[in-house]
């Protein structure tokens, strides 16, 4: 009971009441994670190479599969949960993801805008010659 007063360390498995059973249930958790990850990875490779799906939608589908697999790794390999003893870990992760999204989406957005607003290079050369 005294364990619950602090947050759990990231990567720690939940404390089980029956410690004797800990290893076998741990193996089960990792195995489920591996199977799910293999299925998602195989689907990604299939989707990238198939001609059955609508082409322009495939990158979005690949991104969704990657997000799902990231979730599988976080839950089954890193043991991140939504429990009250994991608040600090989840908050740090959420902040990290916020920064990642701002950096990636912001860069793409700004550079796309710049590309659209920059005149073509021939025009630039002419302007420079004047």
């Amino acid at each position: 009971m005294t364990q619950t007063q602090h947050d759990r360390a990231p990567g720690d498995r939940p404390v089980l009441a029956d410690s004797e059973d800990g290893t076998s249930s741990g193996v089960l958790v990792y195995t489920i994670g591996l199977v799910l990850a293999v299925i998602l990875t195989a689907t990604s490779f299939w989707a990238a190479n198939t001609s059955l799906l609508w082409g322009p939608g495939i990158p979005l589908g690949l991104a969704v599969l990657a997000i799902a697999q990231m979730g599988v790794h976080l839950v089954f390999f890193l043991h991140i949960t939504t429990g009250p003893d994991n608040t600090n870990n989840v908050l740090a992760l959420a902040f990290g993801l916020l920064v990642v999204i701002v950096v990636v989406a912001g860069s793409l957005w700004i550079m796309d805008n710049l590309n659209n607003m920059t005149p073509p290079s021939e025009q630039m050369n002419m302007q420079m010659q004047h």
């Binding site: 360390a9 990231p10 870990n89 740090a92 990642v100 950096v103 990636v104 793409l108 550079m111």
Partner: peptide, 29 residues
């Protein structure tokens, strides 16, 4: 100490992933 060390390393890993996100952004651009 077990919680503090692992949490500190977790923060480092997230900062490492932020660094990777900058490289990903550069690649995507």
């Amino acid at each position: 100490k077990r919680v503090v060390v692992a949490y500190g390393f977790w923060i480092f890993l997230l900062s490492d992933i932020v660094m990777f996100s900058a490289l990903f952004a550069a690649y995507a651009v």
